[in-house]
């Protein structure tokens, strides 16, 4: 399963809920304001790294760039829209809108 999260983890519970329900081996793709979760050095880093023991985490590059995020948490894969499409082709999707 591919999960997308488009809300910041600092103001919304979407990513917390997503992480609690993502199966082992699932991929969480952070898009739009969701990419703030991937910012290195922020307070969500510990939670995201813990989640990465079970799930893969990716972030949409154009959304990172648009928000001036240049340093991602180690282990987060950066994808473009083509990569987003590939993830959808490989998996069913749940959007945590």
């Amino acid at each position: 399963m591919l999960h997308t999260v488009n809300k910041s983890p600092f103001g919304h519970s979407a990513l917390d809920e997503c992480i609690s329900m993502a199966a082992d081996g699932a991929t969480i793709l952070l898009i739009e304001d969701g990419v703030y979760a991937a910012k290195a050095g922020a307070s969500y880093e510990g939670k995201l790294k813990a989640a990465m023991g079970n799930v893969k985490v990716a972030a949409l590059g154009p959304d990172l760039a648009a928000r001036g995020i240049t340093a991602c948490i180690e282990g987060v894969t950066v994808v473009d829209y083509d990569g987003f499409v590939e993830l959808v082709a490989e998996n069913k999707m749940t959007a945590w809108v």
Binding site: M1, M21, A22, A23, K92, M93, A95
Partner: peptide, 11 residues
């Protein structure tokens, strides 16, 4: 819930 989600055609 996680296991149920994996069985779905769509969520």
């Amino acid at each position: 819930i996680s296991a149920l989600m994996e069985e779905q055609h769509a969520v």
